[in-house]
């Protein structure tokens, strides 16, 4: 009995950790499992296994349209966020600028401020102008939401970079700009890729912004899922969700090849 107790007391920690891991993965696992059910309503564990829901989804043009919309929005907003964040990171990472801390805190604000706020403001703005929200407005709203993620990743990577590299390039004859482009940028590309992937995924998965701002014609995948889920819960949605999860995992494994996962972990400091 004593021995069992001792083993148990040493094993309790991994058990706890395992339990939490299960907790973290539970809802996603449930959805993926439920997407295979043969019955017409969602159940977990699934009744039987079938791929018919996937087949339905993949041939349904309206789902396809939602995916394309989401993709286009995510790509365009990621691009704009990059155009904003990359130069900002280069400037703010220079030492000796007194306002740098303040400015980077300001640029990080969209993460801290509830998104409903500025999304509401954008919507109201357009209403006051008596016009529907143009696609550009939606893209820009997404861009402002994800720019901080790219900025944060870049700032962290630039922080880690040896400042002497830039100085060495300059001592060899490069102008400041040339030094950035030829020496600094190539060494933060890995980090940038990770930040870009994260931002892309966040933009793709975002619900609140398109929910408020997108017109009925421009349905994104998460919005569509949300609307369906709120009304009628069919395994078809589970299939869509599972597909979305798989694609997300693919994108992030591609981007994480150089250890961006640990980099994202480190940035939280």
């Amino acid at each position: 009995m004593n021995r069992a107790l001792r083993i148990a007391s040493r094993a309790w920690f991994p058990v706890v950790v395992a339990a939490i891991i299960v907790f973290l993965l539970a809802p996603i696992a449930v959805i993926v499992a439920a997407s295979f059910t043969t019955s017409n309503y969602l159940s977990f564990p699934p009744d039987g296994l079938t791929l018919k829901w996937y087949a339905e989804v993949l041939v349904d043009p309206s789902w396809g349209a939602a995916v394309i919309n989401s993709l286009l929005l995510a790509i365009s907003s990621s691009l704009i966020a990059s155009v904003v964040a990359v130069p900002a990171a280069l400037v703010l990472s220079r030492r000796g600028i007194r306002a740098a801390d303040l400015l980077s805190s300001f640029l990080m604000l969209p993460i801290m401020v509830p998104s409903v706020l500025f999304v509401l403001g954008v919507l109201l703005g357009y209403q006051l102008l008596d016009s529907p929200v143009p696609v550009l407005g939606l893209i820009l709203a997404l861009a402002v939401l994800i720019a901080p993620y790219i900025l944060r990743t870049l700032l962290a990577a630039l922080e880690e970079l040896d400042p002497a590299l830039e100085e060495a390039a300059m001592s060899l004859g490069a102008s400041r700009l040339r030094a950035w482009v030829s020496v600094v940028l190539p060494n933060v590309l890995g980090a940038y890729a990770g930040g870009l992937a994260l931002a892309f995924i966040i933009a793709f998965d975002e619900l609140v912004v398109p929910l408020f701002l997108a017109g009925p014609a421009l349905s994104t995948l998460p919005v569509r899922i949300y609307r369906e889920v709120a009304f009628d819960v069919s395994p078809q949605i589970a299939a869509v969700s599972a597909l979305l999860v798989v694609v997300t995992v693919l994108i992030s494994t591609l981007a994480a090849r150089d250890g961006s996962a640990t980099r994202i972990l480190k940035e939280q400091r």
């Binding site: 040896d162 002497a164 590299l165 100085e167 060495a168 390039a169 300059m170 001592s171 060899l172 004859g173 490069a174 102008s175 030829s182 020496v183 190539p186 060494n187």
Partner: peptide, 27 residues
Amino acid sequence: VNKRGIGVVFQNYALFPHLTVRQNVAY
């Protein structure tokens, strides 16, 4: 800095990690 005609060897050498030896010297 970039026009002074002065060569600098830094404390940690500051070799460009993304370039080969040849590319570093040719920079």
